[in-house]
Design a protein around this nucleic acid. Structure first.
Lengths: 198, 198
DNA sequence: AAAAGTATTTGACGCGGTGTCAAGAATGTG
DNA sequence: CACATTCTTGACACCGCGTCAAATACTTTT
């Protein structure tokens, strides 16, 4: 059989960068094809559809991002872990120029915009899955904190609260683009969760 | 001059409903024209562009929504106000069937997807403006709370925190669609802000 | 080594969405 | 009654998505 003339992973990286910068709907396969030096039809042949290509590219990103969060949430005092977590998240939102925002949050809010297929549902699950995994990591860190006496409270609801604030930060980033304010809110949240002043 | 054959406000309402349900990009002017019993060209004549139509429709929604929040945040104990605020927000996200999510949050995350014009910037400002006004209402309520001894802390940062959580709830709504969980997070946030347990 | 088989590439097509334009239609005004 | 003004209507160019058949390049079989 005829060999492929492009690298599968290169295309995924290039595609995700475009999706990240311009949104899924805002990115055309022509854009990706041009950037990757590939014919548009070849992308359909290799991936099947725009959504399938996005999903493959997103999975790549998700596992990488989750890995980096796992690292920062895995060692140090609870306060240090949570601070590093928010730092990593904000850094992620503010990466690129102009900043690209949070791919997961942006993807989630783009759902239901596509009315046709059930592909939407696959994407929703992929996004929800990453959010759930991040919540799990936070819960683990908080549970460790309970054991060490750094935190008293329900790790499950606290993790949910933190992940909610994180999504909110991703939204505020789009609205105001003020990184200092994002950090202020993040610090306040850590203080609140850890019970500063008690 | 020839009189217009449709009602300006009717079209705005119909258009916003579509934008809300399917997103700005996911809604075509043909859809709106069909629904409103108007020719597509007439919409361009009356509003100029899809973005301008959206902005006009959004302003309508924004002032209405802001008014309802102003009401619930204006009377009662601080706890009652914040609880009612979250109730109103969640009810808003979950309105329609299927639920349509938060228009502001969805709109914000759709930005930058349109790469062409500076219209994006107008929309961003409209969204950011509503978020800022809501933050102002929250700050007022919290300041009242300080006066009455119901709250001790910085109203500004607390308001920012609450508005961030609210945006986060809008995102989680898309991810999980679990209203009970949203309410749980909202209640936890109120408890945290008001210093339950202290 | 030649032929058959297989997967990829390429270019053309249909469909639908955006935005523009000129021509037609309906009113107010002199 | 004619005129100007505004709205409406339908046609057009352009672009994005997804599909298809034909051409191409490599592997396997004989």
């Amino acid at each position: 059989m005829r060999p492929r003339e492009f690298d599968h992973d290169d295309v995924l990286r290039i595609a995700f960068d475009q999706f990240w910068r311009k949104g899924v709907r805002g990115t055309s396969l022509s854009d990706i094809a041009r950037d990757a030096g590939v014919q548009r039809g070849s992308l359909y042949n290799a991936f099947g559809s725009k959504e399938a290509l996005f999903l493959a590219a997103y999975e790549r990103y998700a596992s990488e991002y989750l890995g980096s969060l796992q690292e920062v949430l895995g060692s140090g005092s609870l306060r240090a872990r949570l601070t590093a977590y928010f730092d990593a998240a904000i850094k992620n939102f503010r990466s690129g120029s102009p900043p690209r925002g949070c791919p997961t949050t942006r993807g989630l809010m783009e759902l239901g915009a596509a009315e046709g297929e059930g592909l939407d549902e696959n994407a929703r699950q992929a996004f929800a899955d990453l959010v759930a995994r991040i919540t799990g990591l936070l819960k683990n860190a908080l549970s460790d904190g309970v054991k060490r006496g750094e935190f008293s409270g329900d790790p499950a609801i606290a993790a949910l609260h933190i992940v909610t604030v994180t999504r909110g930060l991703a939204v505020l980033e789009r609205a105001f683009g003020d990184e200092a304010e994002l950090r202020k809110i993040a610090k306040h949240t850590v203080d609140l969760v850890l019970g500063k002043g008690r």
